[in-house]
């Protein structure tokens, strides 16, 4: 296999306790730590392992968004990606348009495999990989926890509601990864220095001749409703009584 494309989305770090802005216009992002979407980081780790065992020649990391996403691409390069592409857009980009951007990059780069996180932890949409596979007319293996490549086929273990589903797909294909696929490597300082010299191409979204899809518009945000404060009981007998009082036992 020649090239693997990996998507890296810049999102609010998963350790940040997200707060809705008081005017309901969104969530607080000022001064908040931003990181690579954790599922995307796992996708990149998998791509690097595939390349390092000789099953692919090049790993290209791609981000679509503001120029700040260069930070996340540099981190991806420091992890070991060969080069990076940033498709710049000042506005946030909807999943279908992101899929169309990937489609256009696939045509430029002739990629054999696209590895993405199963969802981004900001919008929690879980759409892009499936949409890309549809536009490409190629297989999708979503929520993957194991990926084996042999020649022109991939065998994928998928974490689904009823257990583990094993599917076999012809390449090229889109695979979206789940948490248990691997543990991403830590980036070392010399790798960060080396990453500064690796190529990072910047493209404007409108250079790619991609039709923008009609977005699902987010008009208002609110905090989730809180549950009422509960009681602490002292022992099992009181717990059983409390459950009986509620008619639950």
């Amino acid at each position: 296999m020649d090239k693997i494309l990996v998507g890296l989305k810049r999102v609010v770090d998963y350790n940040v306790r997200v707060r809705v802005r008081s005017d309901g216009s969104g969530v607080e992002t000022d001064g908040v730590k931003m990181s690579i979407n954790p599922f995307d980081e796992i996708a990149l780790e998998e791509a690097l392992r595939i390349r390092d065992r000789g099953d692919a020649s090049e790993v290209i990391v791609v981000s679509i968004g503001s120029s700040d996403a260069q930070q996340q691409l540099r981190t991806g390069l420091a992890m070991g990606a060969d080069r990076a592409i940033l498709v710049e857009s000042a506005e946030s980009v909807d999943p279908l348009t992101v899929a169309r951007v990937f489609m256009s990059l696939i045509e430029r780069e002739t990629a054999d495999l696209v590895l993405l996180g199963k969802q981004a932890i900001d919008g929690d949409n879980s759409q892009t990989g499936q949409m890309l596979a549809a536009l490409w007319g190629r297989p999708q293996a979503t929520f993957a926890s194991k990926l084996d490549i042999e020649g022109s086929t991939a065998t994928v273990t998928r974490e689904i509601d009823s257990g583990l589903e094993i599917v076999e797909v012809d390449l090229p294909a889109v695979v979206t990864v789940d948490l248990r696929m691997n543990e991403p490597r830590y980036v070392k300082l010399p790798d960060i220095m080396k990453a500064k010299k690796k190529p990072l191409d910047m493209l404007a979204l409108n250079e790619l001749n991609v039709e923008q899809a009609a977005a699902i518009r987010e008009v208002r945000f609110e905090p989730p409703s809180e549950r009422e404060k509960g009681v602490i009981v002292d022992d099992v007998a009181s717990l059983v009584t409390a459950l009986k009082d509620k008619g639950l036992l």
């Binding site: 909807d94 999943p95 279908l96 899929a99 919008g123 929690d124 949409n125 879980s126 759409q127 892009t128 990989g129 499936q130 949409m131 890309l132 596979a133 549809a134 536009l135 999708q140 979503t142 929520f143 998928r158 974490e159 689904i160 509601d161 899809a213 009609a214 977005a215 699902i216």
Partner: peptide, 22 residues
Amino acid sequence: TTFGRDLMPRIAALLGVNQVSD
């Protein structure tokens, strides 16, 4: 569910629309 989350975006893309998730 994992069934719907796998399937519905593929349908949406074939129809040229974004999806409302969840």
